[in-house]
């Protein structure tokens, strides 16, 4: 069993998203440790991009703060190396195609493998473009994680059949950000995925409250939370690790 399968093998998985280097590397290291200590099953690490077109204002802000703080892809890899000394759960990168492409795909994926990065999410690489990245990901044992959206409809089967790691189910139209209500028929989407794939489904976009986490965990195998955590980072900065820890615990408890 690989690390991602392991993460989904004991109950519903809670997956926090953290932008690397927001506001600095040390804070990110501490935040990840706190999240893991409080029950995170898998951590999604965002490598900042100057123009994150799939993100709402909250995560855009994190990207800007991190870039202003001097984060680079090299520093992110060094940080992951440090994390891997005592963190056993899967770590998955979330970034944009150009960050990987311009770094050199071979070099990027070699470093992912060497430093124990288990997966890669590229929100601007849909099914039609994934073959540019997928073979290299496969040869370096990095799962290229696919997404399905409320608009995917007839595409769900095709995407699911080739899904690796886990499937990222986008809960709502639009960009990332907390939402009061999620109205998409997610059971239908998850059902369509399960007809075509064995990989676990994790729902993300718009989830912030324990109540929402519980509802989503009833439908899917995992819950991804980004903006709600980034808001804590924006509010508490270097003091945020403890608040993120408390938050992760409350979400994880709600999902049991």
């Amino acid at each position: 069993m690989n690390r991602i399968q392991e993460a989904f093998s004991h109950g519903k998985a809670f997956i926090p998203f953290i932008t690397c280097g927001d506001p600095d590397i040390n804070t990110t290291l501490e935040v990840v440790h706190e999240a893991v200590k409080n029950g995170a099953d898998l951590v999604e690490l965002g490598i900042p991009f100057s123009d994150p077109t799939a993100e709402g204002p909250v995560i855009q802000g994190a990207n800007l703060r991190a870039l202003e703080g001097g984060i680079t892809t090299d520093k992110v890899f060094a940080m992951v190396k440090a994390l891997r000394k005592n963190i056993k759960i899967p770590l998955v990168f979330m970034t944009y195609a150009n960050v990987v492409f311009s770094y050199g795909m071979e070099k990027f994926l070699t470093l992912c493998e060497e430093n124990g990065v288990d997966g890669l999410i590229l929100p601007d690489v849909p099914f039609e473009e994934k073959e540019e990245f997928a073979p290299l990901c496969r040869s370096h044992n990095v799962a290229l994680i696919s997404m399905v959206a409320p608009t995917s409809e007839d595409r769900i089967a095709m995407i699911s059949r080739e899904a690796e790691g886990f499937l990222y189910v986008v809960s709502s139209l639009g960009v990332t950000g907390t939402r009061k209500e999620i109205t998409t028929d997610l059971s239908a989407i998850v059902g369509a995925v399960r007809k075509n794939s064995e990989v676990p489904c994790a729902i993300g976009f718009g989830i912030s409250t324990p109540e929402q986490a519980r509802k989503m965990a009833d439908i899917a195998d995992g819950v991804i939370v980004g903006s709600a955590i980034i808001k804590l980072l924006a509010k508490y900065g270097k003091d945020s690790p403890r608040y993120v820890g408390e938050y992760v615990r409350s979400m994880k408890e709600a999902m049991h």
Partner: peptide
């Protein structure tokens, strides 16, 4: 060229 966009926009 190509279509490097989020899945949400693919059917559009």
């Amino acid at each position: 060229g190509g279509q490097y966009i989020p899945e949400t926009l693919m059917n559009a």
